[in-house]
């Protein structure tokens, strides 16, 4: 009965009012868009929130020129290895971090503009068989990579100018780490999810692996997006890209799970399910992004869905437009701005 109460109720009015189209970016290059993101960029003494678009072979920076008008100011041309994703780096300025590779990430690069002569720069941060990467606060990157015999979980610390300042390793679990999340309000804590559906907790400063906890078998292949600690419990936002519909709680795209790190016991706090009418095997979600208490994801139908994770409600739906299906959904630096992208390079900015 409790689970049934958590199944979202969607109202037509909510769908229309929650997302307002603010502006649109249309890249004239016909390359296939692979990712979109937002980055703070300072030029001529003023700091602006800019948009980064990534195609397989080029990454472009767009700055706001006028209301509803964006100008492409820089384009970095990449080599033969395709760009896979943009890696957001919180609290940084004038730095774009990207991952390149074929099926998996093979290298991580930083893209910059030289302050001396305005030339475009690229620098290699890491190479390897990289399974997961996340940009952390204080210009740090965490990544998990596999060699033939072992897994390495590594922190790379960057200077303000994008140089590698320091690096150290975290104790790896036996199984491969698939995703990382910082623990909000706990500077030295990091969590990860693994291939066997466990949550691991590290002490970032000492590199210690503090705890490994089972997520449970009900929802395999969980991906962690965000975590915060409160009242002695660790709350983790998990997504289930391949979730199957269950009678007890619908088809949860996201779950908030409370873990007691002392006992490794856990309980589900909130389910954020696919909207009614969109449930069923044919519409698991493709990929999602979580910021603050909001989650956005592209469904295989080409619709973007937005949820309030604390309410467990789907609060907005963006159906595919006449120009085509949505392929990308990313929050800008906070959850008041949603970047919605199509494969042809069109990016729409929505106020949420």
């Amino acid at each position: 009965g409790v689970a049934e109460d958590l199944i979202p109720v969607l109202l037509d009015g909510v769908r229309e009012e929650s997302l307002q189209l603010v502006s649109k970016i249309k890249d004239s290059c016909s390359c296939c868009a692979v990712d979109v993101g937002a980055v703070w960029w300072e030029a001529a003494g003023s700091r602006e929130l800019c948009v980064v678009t990534a195609g397989e072979s080029a990454v472009s920076l767009w700055r706001p020129l006028a209301p509803d008008h964006w100008g492409k100011v820089h384009t970095w041309q990449l080599g033969e290895v395709p760009v896979i994703q943009i890696i957001p780096l919180p609290d940084t300025c004038n730095l774009v971090c990207i991952a390149l590779g074929d099926l998996e990430i093979g290298e991580i690069r930083l893209l910059q503009v030289s302050s001396e002569n305005d030339s475009l720069k690229q620098s290699l941060v890491k190479t390897g068989n990289i399974k997961a990467v996340l940009g952390l606060k204080d210009r740090r990157l965490v990544s998990s990579s596999r060699t033939a015999h072992e897994q390495q979980v590594e922190i790379t610390s960057l200077s303000e100018t994008g140089r590698i300042k320091d690096g150290w390793t975290l104790m790896p679990p036996e199984e491969t780490v698939l995703a990382f999340a910082e623990v909000e309000g706990m500077g030295d804590a990091l969590v990860g999810t693994t291939t066997v559906n466990s949550i691991v907790i590290w002490n970032l400063k000492t590199g210690q692996l503090l705890k490994k906890m089972r997520v449970g078998y009900s929802y395999p292949a969980s991906i962690c997006h965000q975590a915060y600690s409160d009242s002695g419990l660790l709350f983790v936002v998990l997504s289930h890209p391949h979730a199957k519909e269950s009678e007890s709680c619908g088809n949860p795209a996201f779950r908030v799970v409370a873990f007691n790190p002392r006992t490794a016991r856990s309980t589900g706090v909130m389910f954020s399910s696919l909207p009614p009418g969109l449930t069923g095997r044919q519409v698991p979600y493709l990929e999602g992004d979580v910021k603050d208490t909001s989650a956005a994801a592209v469904l295989t139908s080409g619709t973007i869905a937005v949820w309030d994770l604390l309410l467990g409600h789907c609060t907005a739906l963006l159906p595919p437009g006449p120009a085509g299906s949505w392929a990308l959904a990313r929050w800008a630096t906070n959850s008041t701005c949603l970047l919605a992208g199509q494969r042809d390079g069109t990016v729409c900015l929505y106020r949420y």
Partner: peptide, 23 residues
């Protein structure tokens, strides 16, 4: 959820686990 579901809760879990875990 109640404490009985999750076992005894400690507000200092991070410091305690850091002190107990192998370096």
């Amino acid at each position: 959820c109640s404490e009985s579901d999750l076992g005894p809760i400690s507000l200092n879990w991070f410091e305690e686990l850091s002190a107990e875990a192998p370096p």
